[in-house]
Design a protein around this nucleic acid. Structure first.
Lengths: 252, 252
DNA sequence: CTTGACCTTCCCCCTGGGGCAAGGTTCCAC
DNA sequence: GTGGAACCTTGCCCCAGGGGGAAGGTCAAG
């Protein structure tokens, strides 16, 4: 006859766990001796090892209870299912390991693969990390707001990246972020941007105008989404007639 | 700007979980809009995906908190450790699968491999399942009471199994379980058992007398541990002078 | 103007036990 | 035979990592 501690040691569990199994109805309460101690038989030890084997396999205790006295065929079916479940969990853990390996390097984790590839292209162009983060966050917002459209927009933008003038504009626009608001290069850049937009709209397929939306979203929602030079660029592009006006109070 | 539901969808979690992360200090509480709704930025989405990636890897939330803003080298070290941990868990799951596969077939799960092999030998001898269960439970009790000695006893018993007379005695003793108490074969069997014991004790190396202890343990603690014929056998062996006495009241 | 889908806080529930308290036992050594 | 250590008993609260649902406020569409 075993005490609860001896029984627990045999199965490699704590006495707490054994009492827990009693409460859950997994293991029958054994006889008590004269002083109220529980007294177990070897049969209880076998039962406890069964319980632990199933529990170690991740079977919830509530289900273990049903399985202990199940018919052999029911048990076999359940075991097959549990085995499949373990295989799934192993596969999932493997995938998690792969994701984890990417956690060191970059943004691929946080966005869809397409966006990650796009960000890599921008990085290769030599664009600033600040801009790349801005771009990443913009795509996150878009994908959340409108997943299907975001995919289409992304495809469109990646196609545009094939245009050397567009790439140059992207790089220069990025660089302009740090310029002073009265930098003499700003009007020229604004003109190039407007010219490029005009060329786009004259093209046979006219894609939906999306940039304003994106830009506003990113500007409003993200810290560091704008700078004095970018603000002035926006004013320069919205209408050259008010240029002189803004010229005189660029830092308001 | 995202609502809590949109944010949760992006990361594939529930709004409950997001609020939980706020409570745990994993994710900073964002600004509220005029009606008290939380309003999130894309940066929060990135942060949330980070949290989930680590949590999916099995990192406790309390530790995730520390890792989110860790220096790259600290993070790299932690990730390496987490990766090792996952590999361990995968290995453990594989072992569990193997154990699970044995759950269908027999007793190997519940006892040490040595005992399991011994039980297989008994089975091959043609001994009853009842007896094998009794034997199994006896070894469980012994291993629990005295692990080291149990190993030695087991080795000894398995050596004895090499003796054809011992094997024959085992089989006959098992068969006697179901005999009636007044079966005429019992005195003969008792004589053979006593002769064999006598031979053992006369042998050069005299191993410790262990059978009485085991037998008592098993009888006392296990249901179905004895029968009228076995009881009579025990009396026959303990002293032939009282044989006639017991002959007259075998079923007391 | 209603209806359904959101959002808010609050509180209790689950699993699988762990920790600790307050008290009774048993065993082993001295 | 008498400590003291190591058991045992019940009872209660605690943890992670959320889930469920109540009770109420809000928002957008038809």
């Amino acid at each position: 006859m075993l005490t609860i501690g001896q029984l627990a040691d045999y199965a490699g569990v704590t006495t707490k766990a054994v009492r827990h199994y009693h409460e859950r109805g997994l293991l029958a309460e054994p006889e008590r001796d004269a002083s109220g101690y529980r007294r177990y038989t070897a049969g209880d030890a076998v039962e406890l090892v069964k319980i632990r084997t199933l529990a170690d396999a991740g079977v919830p205790l509530a289900r273990v209870r049903g399985l202990l006295d199940a018919e052999p065929d029911v048990l076999a079916t359940a075991i097959a299912e549990i085995d499949r479940d373990i295989a799934d969990r192993v596969a999932k853990l493997r995938r998690t390991r792969e994701r984890l390996a990417q956690l060191r390097g970059g943004d691929r984790l946080f966005v869809s693969p397409g966006v990650a590839d796009h960000l890599d292209e921008l990085r290769e162009l030599g664009m600033s990390e600040r801009h790349i983060r801005l771009e990443r966050d913009g795509w996150i917002l878009m994908r959340t707001a409108a997943p299907a459209e975001a995919e289409a927009w992304l495809a469109e933008k990646r196609e545009l990246m094939g245009d050397p003038e567009f790439r140059a504009l992207c790089v220069d626009f990025d660089a302009a972020f740090d310029w002073p608001a009265d930098d003499p290069r700003l009007p020229g850049l604004a003109a190039r941007l407007r010219a490029w937009h005009a060329g786009r709209e004259a093209a046979p397929e006219s894609p939906p105008v999306r940039d304003p939306g994106i830009a506003r979203l990113a500007e409003v929602s993200l810290p560091g989404g704008s700078s004095p030079a970018w603000d002035r660029l926006a004013r320069l592009m919205s209408g050259p007639e008010r240029l002189a006006d803004n010229e005189r109070a660029p830092l308001t």
